[in-house]
């Protein structure tokens, strides 16, 4: 495993993208990860404000007609190697908005998704397990 891959797994900068149709509960659970109880900064994970700084695109919510092309653009603007994590039933398969007229597609029809974290909303423990899977995937990929 190269030095750069190793560094990537130890310092994942996360850009949190709430793609329109979400009930905001996933987003609140994501913030739990930064609180003293879970504190993912121990592993070098921080939230960043710009997609240009990001290594991980964390998408929540089912994509609305308006948000889907923009989510795609944000993905294209992220410098590679970049990873995508889908968080919550909405992002995985449109969740409670499955029948909605305004939620045209799942996230993985739009961009390659590396890790799926199911749940409505997923527990913070589940998210940490997802991140661990992501790191293992990056290590194996090399």
């Amino acid at each position: 495993m190269g030095l750069k891959t190793k560094a990537l797994t130890k310092s994942l900068w996360v850009f949190h993208l709430c793609a329109g149709g979400s009930c905001n509960n996933c987003d609140i659970e994501i913030l739990d990860l930064l609180t003293p109880r879970f504190d993912v900064e121990r592993f070098g994970i921080v939230l960043v404000g710009s997609a240009r700084h990001a290594d991980v695109l964390l998408v929540t919510g089912s994509l609305t007609r308006k948000a889907a092309p923009r989510a795609r653009r944000v993905y294209e603007q992220m410098p590679k190697p970049g990873l995508v994590v889908a968080c919550g039933a909405c992002a995985l398969g449109r969740g409670i908005f499955n029948e909605g007229y305004n939620t045209p597609c799942r996230l993985d029809e739009l961009m390659p998704v590396d890790v799926y974290i199911p749940g409505c909303p997923p527990k913070p423990e589940a998210m940490i397990a997802g991140i661990a899977k992501l790191i293992n995937k990056v290590k194996g990929q090399k």
């Binding site: 750069k4 891959t5 560094a7 990537l8 130890k10 310092s11 290594d55 410098p79 590679k80 190697p81």
Partner: peptide, 8 residues
């Protein structure tokens, strides 16, 4: 080190 390995 990680930033050095990213796309510009």
């Amino acid at each position: 080190i990680k930033l050095l390995g990213k796309e510009i």
